[in-house]
């Protein structure tokens, strides 16, 4: 479903991605873990074309989405084909990024009307359905500022789902939440994974990685160090860097 090969990305002198390749199968849930600054979020942002890699390729559903050779300059061109492939992926951000001047329902219904060309009434009906799915049917007419972080993030998930993407990308979506609100977001994501959505999840929630992931990818210093099924990666990590990281995050006081 996703095939990324040889991604390189630098910010100034800092090499954020060094030759990263990742393949995600249909209906697979891949969880990416690693220390801050290891390049996890940048990888996700490269997959969906929000960052322009210096070099590398990304295919979505077998079709070429990004082709970059070292020496190519300037940002990615947002051609019709680029946008068509880009919206096969839905993305949820750490900071929710809801549109503050629109109601919850308008947030979810905007893209289906403007991008898919759905009639307004049909888009609103779809939006209501999705809001019910994330258990927020009663908040349809509220503005985002009236919602808790967990509610905002669930709206954000519904908004991404409204375009019926084949792939969902989650970029540290629980990192800005109060601890008691994390669960409600994770359980929506878990349901999505169970329903067969193809997902790439960048997170610090090791419990989620353990229970929901089909495969866990550990990144450090811009490279994929190790990957494997959660039982293997958490139970018997092969690399010393993986062990060191897991010891730190799994040892609670």
């Amino acid at each position: 479903m996703i095939r990324a090969r040889g991604l390189h990305k630098r910010f100034g002198v800092l090499e954020v991605l060094r030759d990263v390749s990742l393949t995600v199968a249909p209906a697979e849930t891949v969880v990416v873990i690693g220390p801050s600054g290891s390049g996890k979020s940048t990888l996700l942002r490269c997959l969906i074309g929000l960052e322009t890699p210096e070099a590398g390729e990304v295919d979505i559903g077998g079709q070429p989405f990004i082709r970059r050779r070292s020496g190519d300059r300037g940002p990615l061109r947002r051609t019709a084909e680029f946008r068509r492939l880009q919206r096969q992926m839905g993305m949820v951000f750490q900071q929710f990024s809801l549109f503050p001047h629109l109601t919850v329902l308008q947030n979810v219904a905007l893209a289906p009307v403007r991008v898919l060309g759905l009639p307004a009434e049909a888009a609103r009906a779809r939006a209501r359905q999705l809001l019910a799915k994330v258990d927020l049917a009663d908040k349809a007419d509220a503005y985002p500022e009236k919602l808790s972080g967990g509610q905002k993030q669930r709206v954000s998930i519904a908004r991404a789902l409204a375009l019926e993407p084949r792939i969902m990308l989650f970029d540290e979506v629980t990192s800005a939440l109060d601890p008691e609100l994390i669960h409600e977001v994770l359980s929506v994501m878990k349901q999505l994974a169970t329903d067969g959505m193809t997902m790439v999840v960048v997170t610090h929630e090791m419990g989620f990685a353990h229970k929901v992931a089909d495969r866990v990818v550990f990144m450090d210093e811009g490279s994929i160090v190790e990957e494997g099924p959660p039982a293997a990666l958490f139970g018997a990590p092969r690399e010393s860097r993986t062990r060191a990281f897991l010891e730190k995050v799994l040892t609670h006081i």
């Binding site: 969906i48 929000l50 947002r78 946008r83 880009q86 919206r87 992926m89 839905g90 993305m91 951000f93 900071q95 990024s97 809801l98 549109f99 629109l102 905007l110 893209a111 403007r114 991008v115 908004r159 991404a160 375009l163």
Partner: peptide, 20 residues
């Protein structure tokens, strides 16, 4: 992030300006 959210939702330049 407002621009990025609009981009990944597939909104074109004019729609992004007008609605977001």
């Amino acid at each position: 992030d407002q621009t990025e959210a609009a981009d990944v939702l597939g909104l074109g330049y004019l729609d992004k300006m007008r609605f977001v």
